[in-house]
Design a protein around this nucleic acid. Structure first.
Length: 828
RNA sequence: GCGGGAGUGGCGGAAUUGGCAGACGCGCCGGACUUAGGAUCCGGUGGGUUUUCCCUUAAGGGUUCGAGUCCCUUCUCCCGCACCA
C-alpha cells in the first residue's frame, strides 16, 4: 500500500464519478425542505483567482452540508459574461468578444470542476447567451411598460483615452480604472431605470434582512440617503421660481444668501441676459471643467461668485443675494440651497470668505451664540430667535409650524429627498444585452414586441474605439421597421449595463432552459428566495441593491413569491499575500491552478477555510498550505492504516456501556467533534474552528491508537470514529472524504449519507476538573463528580488540604460556585 | 469629518452567555524511527522570575467574587462614504 495519498488520482476519479452520476442535479421536491445556496457568479476573465476559490469553497461547504442534512439543495453556477474586457480583447487582439468569452468560460469551468465544487452544471447560464439575454430584454420591456424605464439626457462618465463611456463602478477616485485617465462628463441621451421610485421600500425592507451583515445594511442605508425636510420656493426678483431643499426649515429666518449650482438653468439665463458679466462666466466655465473629485472633495475650498441677482425671502420678503458656488451640486435636491451660515458649517465657511452676513436664529440651551465672532456653525437644537412669530418656540416645533405656514402660502411643503439617483443603464458598447427599443420618425420611441425578442446582437461588427457603439456601424442591425407603423426605423444601439443581467440571474437558475418564460412560476416559487448568498463585500451596494430593486419590481408584477432576493448574506473577506491585495503589478499573485496541481483541490480548500473566519481578510501562506496538505495525508494514513482492522466491525449502539476509559475518551472526542462541526457550519459560519475540531478528532484517534495496542482495540468504537471523521470531512475535503468512505468499505457516495448526529450519552462524563480560585486567582484544580451541587462543590474544595493550607489565617467571606467549572473563594 | 470593523504569543487564529487566556495550525526546540530525513510518529513551546510566585489580550481608568468579553477615556490600523443642503 502507498504510504501517501495520491490526491491527483483520487480527485480525478471522484470528479468523474460525480459527473457521470449527475450527483448534484436537483429537482423541485415538495417532500423535502428546500435550500438555495448561491455564490456570486464570476466574470469570465479567463482564470479563477484565489478570491473565487474562497468564495466557492465556502459555498460548497454550505451546500454539501445542507444536502447531507437531507435538504433539497439548489447550488448552481453561471457566468456574468457581458462586459468591457471582452470588447477590449477584440480591439487589441482581434478576437471576437463571443469567442474570447466562450474560451474563458470553458477554461474557468474546467478550473471550477477541478476544485470539486458540487454544482448542478445542468443549470449553467451565461448572460451573453441569446437564450438568457432574450429575457434580460424582456425584463427591460416589463420595466418600460410600468414606466420604470425611461430615456433622458444626462451627463455620464467619459474616459477620453479609452474613448468610451464608463460605468460608475469603473471610475475609481475619479479616474478610469484601466488607464488611470481623469474621467470627464459627457452629455448623452440615456436610458434609466427608475430605482428612486423604490427608494423608500428599499430602505424600509432593510429591516427584513436580519440575515445580512449590519455593515452592508448600513452601507445601503447611507447610499439611499433619505433626508426629510422641506422644499421652499424662493423667487428671483424677475419672478423666476428658485426652489431649494432643506432639512432645516426652522432656520429659514437665518437665510442671508442663496447659492445655485453652476449648472443651474437660472445661471444660464442670467448669463444670456447679462453677457457683460465676465466674472460670472469665467467662474462657471472654470467650475464646470473641474473634475468630479476636485469638485466634491471636502478638501476643496469653497468658491463662489455673486450673480448680481437677488431673490426674495419667502417669509420676510427680504432681498437675498444669489450666488453661484462650487459646493452646490445640480444633481442633489433642486441644485439650489438657501445659505444659513449660523447653522451650517459649509455656509459659514462661505459667508466668512465672502463677508456675507451671519444671523443666529436658534439659540441652543445654555449657550449664547454671537454671529459676529462665531467660527463654528451650530446645528444643535434650541430655541427660536430672530424668527418673527416663531420666536421662543422649540426649533422642532417651529420646523412643523414653518412648513405649515409655507404650505398655506403656497411657498413650500414637507419633502423627502434621496441621495439615490436613477440607475443609468445605457452603455455605448457592443458586448452587452441590446436595449429592445426602436426609434421611428413617425411613432417616436417604440418598444420591440415581446414576440420579436431577442433583439440579436450581430456578430459581424467592427470594434474600433471610436466612442460610439459599434452597433451604429452595423447597417443590418441599425435599420429596421417600426413595429407599430411598419415604416423605416432605427434600433437603439446602446446596450445594457451588465448589472442589469446580474440582477436576475438567481431567478433564471430555477428554470434555466425555459423557452417560454424568463422563469417559471412553479420552479421560482419553490426555490426563491436564495437562502444563503455568498460573495465579496465589494458588491455591497451596486449588485445587491439592483437585485433587490429587480426583485421588488418582479414581486409587484406578481412574477416572484418574495420581495427580497437573498435571505442570508455572507460577505467574505479578501485573499491577500503579505498583507496586500494580490495583483499582477505587485507580482504577488498565487495561481489557484498551480496550487491545485501541486497540492490538490482539497488542500487548497482546506487551507482557505482553516486560515481565517470567512468574513475576515485572509493572508495567503505557503507554509499554511503545507500544513493543510500534511493534515490531509495524516488523515488518509490514519484511515488507510486502520481500515482492515475495523473492516466488518459492527456499529456501536448509542449509549453503549462497559467501555474502557480510552474508548470512552475516543467516543467523547468523536461526538464532541460532531456537535462542534455541526454548530460551526450551520449557525456560526466559522469554518476555521470546524476544521480545528476535526483536527482534534484526528489527534484523539491517533492518541487512542497509540494508547491501545492493535488487537486490543475496540473495533466498533474505532470504526465509528473513522466513519464519522469521513462524514465530517465531506463538506470540506470532498474527494478525500469519498476516498476514506471507500477505504472503510462503505457503499455509495459519502455525500449521499446523512450528516452524523451526536450521541448525547457519549458526551456524559462522570468526573469534571474544576478550578479553585482564591480571590479570583487560580490556585488549584481538582476532579469532582459531574453534576454535584454547589454546596457539595464548596464542601469538596474546602476539604482539600492544599486549600486549607492556603486559607490559613484568612477568613472566608463567601464562595462563588459555577457548576462544572470553578469555585471562587473570597477571603480576607 | 461621518459611519463600520479590528487591535490577543514569533505568525494565522481560538476563547459561542462575564467563569481555567492562547484551542487548532504554522514556525521553532527536543526525542523516536532511519543508511538518510526537508517524510512520519511522540513530546515541549506567551513572558518573567528570587518558581508552592508574579506579569500578560493596543494604553489608561471603572463595574464585578471574577473582565479578552461590560462601561468610560485615549491611541493605532483597515474598510466604506465623503461639500447630500
Amino acid at each position: 500500500m502507498d504510504s501517501r495519498y495520491n490526491f491527483r488520482q483520487a480527485e480525478k476519479k471522484w470528479q468523474q464519478r460525480w459527473e457521470q452520476a449527475n450527483a448534484f442535479q436537483v429537482k423541485e421536491d415538495s417532500s423535502r425542505q428546500k435550500f438555495y445556496c448561491l455564490e456570486m457568479f464570476p466574470y469570465p476573465s479567463g482564470n479563477l483567482h484565489m478570491g473565487h476559490v474562497r468564495n466557492y469553497a465556502i459555498g460548497d461547504v454550505v451546500a454539501r452540508y445542507h444536502t447531507m442534512q437531507g435538504l433539497a439543495v439548489l447550488h448552481p453556477m453561471g457566468w456574468d459574461a457581458f462586459g468591457l474586457p471582452a470588447e477590449n480583447a477584440a480591439i487589441k487582439h482581434g478576437i471576437h468578444p463571443s469567442r474570447w468569452t466562450r474560451d474563458n468560460i470553458n477554461n474557468m469551468r474546467r478550473q471550477l470542476k477541478s476544485m470539486g465544487v458540487s454544482y448542478d452544471w445542468s443549470r449553467e447560464v451565461a448572460t451573453c447567451h441569446p437564450g438568457y439575454y432574450r429575457w434580460t430584454e424582456w425584463l427591460f420591456l416589463q420595466l418600460y411598460h410600468r414606466g420604470l424605464a425611461y430615456r433622458k439626457q444626462a451627463a455620464v462618465n467619459w474616459c477620453p483615452s479609452c474613448a468610451t463611456v464608463l460605468a460608475n463602478e469603473q471610475v475609481v477616485g475619479g479616474r478610469c480604472e484601466r488607464c488611470d485617465t481623469l474621467v470627464t462628463k459627457k452629455n448623452l441621451s440615456q436610458w434609466f431605470f427608475r430605482i428612486t421610485a423604490y427608494a423608500d421600500r428599499l430602505l424600509q425592507d432593510l429591516d427584513k434582512l436580519q440575515g445580512w451583515p449590519e455593515k452592508v445594511r448600513i452601507m445601503q442605508e447611507n447610499w439611499i440617503g433619505k433626508s426629510t425636510g422641506a422644499e421652499v420656493r424662493f423667487q428671483a426678483e424677475d419672478g423666476t421660481l428658485l426652489p431649494v431643499f432643506t432639512t432645516r426649515p426652522d432656520t429659514i429666518y437665518g437665510v442671508t444668501y442663496m447659492v445655485l449650482a453652476p449648472e443651474h438653468p437660472f445661471v444660464e439665463q442670467l448669463l444670456e441676459r447679462q453677457p457683460e458679466n465676465a466674472a460670472l462666466r469665467a467662474f462657471v466655465d472654470r467650475v464646470k471643467v473641474q473634475s468630479e473629485i476636485d469638485r466634491t472633495s471636502t478638501e476643496t475650498e469653497k468658491e463662489g461668485v455673486f450673480t448680481g441677482a437677488y431673490a426674495l425671502h419667502p417669509l420676510t420678503g427680504e432681498r437675498v443675494p444669489i450666488w453661484v458656488a462650487n459646493y452646490v451640486l445640480l444633481e442633489y435636491g433642486t441644485g439650489a440651497v438657501m445659505g444659513v451660515p449660523a447653522h451650517d458649517q459649509r455656509d459659514l465657511d462661505f459667508a466668512r470668505k465672502y463677508r456675507l452676513p451671519v444671523r443666529v436664529v436658534i439659540q441652543p440651551l445654555g449657550r449664547n451664540l454671537d454671529d459676529r465672532v462665531m467660527t463654528e456653525a451650530c446645528a444643535d437644537p434650541g430655541v427660536m430667535v430672530n424668527s418673527g412669530e416663531f420666536d421662543g418656540l422649540d426649533c422642532e416645533v417651529a420646523k412643523l409650524r414653518i412648513i405649515e405656514l409655507l404650505a398655506r402660502q403656497g411657498k413650500g411643503q414637507e419633502q423627502v429627498n434621496y441621495r439615490l439617483r436613477d440607475w443609468l443603464i445605457s452603455r455605448q458598447r457592443y458586448w452587452g444585452a441590446p436595449i429592445p427599443i426602436v426609434y421611428c420618425d413617425r411613432c417616436g420611441i417604440v418598444p420591440v414586441p415581446e414576440a420579436d425578442l431577442p433583439v440579436m446582437l450581430p456578430l459581424d461588427v467592427a470594434f474600433e474605439p471610436t466612442g460610439e457603439s459599434p452597433l451604429l456601424k452595423s447597417q443590418d442591425f441599425l435599420n429596421t421597421n417600426c413595429p407599430r407603423c411598419g415604416g423605416p426605423a432605427r434600433r437603439e444601439t446602446d446596450t445594457m449595463d451588465t448589472f442589469v443581467c446580474s440582477s436576475w440571474y438567481y431567478l433564471r437558475y430555477c428554470s434555466p432552459r425555459d423557452e417560454e418564460h424568463a422563469f417559471s412560476g412553479d420552479q421560482v416559487g419553490f426555490w426563491t428566495p436564495v437562502d444563503q448568498y455568498i460573495g465579496g463585500v465589494e458588491h455591497a451596494i451596486l449588485h445587491l441593491l439592483y437585485s433587490r430593486f429587480f426583485m421588488k419590481v418582479l414581486y409587484d408584477l406578481g412574477l416572484v413569491p418574495a420581495d427580497e432576493p437573498f435571505t442570508n448574506l455572507l460577505t467574505q473577506g479578501m485573499v491577500l499575500k503579505e498583507g496586500s491585495k494580490m495583483s499582477k503589478s505587485k507580482g504577488n499573485v498565487v495561481s489557484p491552478e498551480e496550487i491545485i496541481e501541486h497540492y490538490g483541490a482539497d488542500t487548497a480548500r482546506l487551507f482557505i477555510l482553516f486560515a481565517a473566519p470567512p468574513e475576515r481578510d485572509l493572508d495567503w501562506s505557503d507554509q499554511g498550505v503545507e500544513g493543510a496538505y500534511r493534515f490531509i495525508n495524516r488523515v488518509w494514513r490514519l484511515v488507510a492504516g486502520a481500515a482492515s482492522e475495523v473492516a466488518g466491525a459492527g456499529r456501536i449502539r448509542p449509549g453503549a456501556a462497559d467501555l474502557s476509559p480510552e474508548e470512552r475518551a475516543l467516543r467523547l472526542a468523536t461526538h464532541r467533534a460532531i456537535l462542534k462541526v455541526t454548530e460551526d457550519i450551520s449557525t456560526r459560519f466559522n469554518f476555521n474552528t470546524a476544521v480545528s475540531a476535526i483536527m482534534e478528532l484526528v489527534n484523539a484517534i491517533y492518541h487512542y491508537a497509540e494508547q491501545v495496542p492493535a488487537g486490543q482495540r475496540h473495533r466498533a468504537v474505532l470504526r465509528e470514529s473513522l466513519v464519522d471523521l469521513a462524514l465530517l470531512l465531506a463538506p470540506f475535503t470532498p474527494h478525500l472524504a469519498e476516498e476514506l468512505w471507500e477505504l472503510l468499505g462503505e457503499s455509495g457516495s459519502v455525500h449521499q449519507q446523512r450528516w452524523p448526529e451526536h450521541d448525547a450519552s457519549a458526551l456524559v462524563v462522570d468526573e469534571v476538573e474544576i478550578v479553585v480560585q482564591i480571590n479570583g486567582r487560580v490556585r488549584d484544580r481538582l476532579n469532582v463528580p459531574a453534576g454535584i451541587s454547589q454546596a457539595e462543590m464548596e464542601q469538596v474544595v474546602l476539604a482539600k488540604q492544599r486549600v486549607q493550607e492556603m486559607l490559613q489565617g484568612k477568613s472566608l467571606v463567601r464562595a462563588v460556585c459555577v457548576p462544572g467549572k470553578l469555585v471562587n473563594l473570597v477571603v480576607k
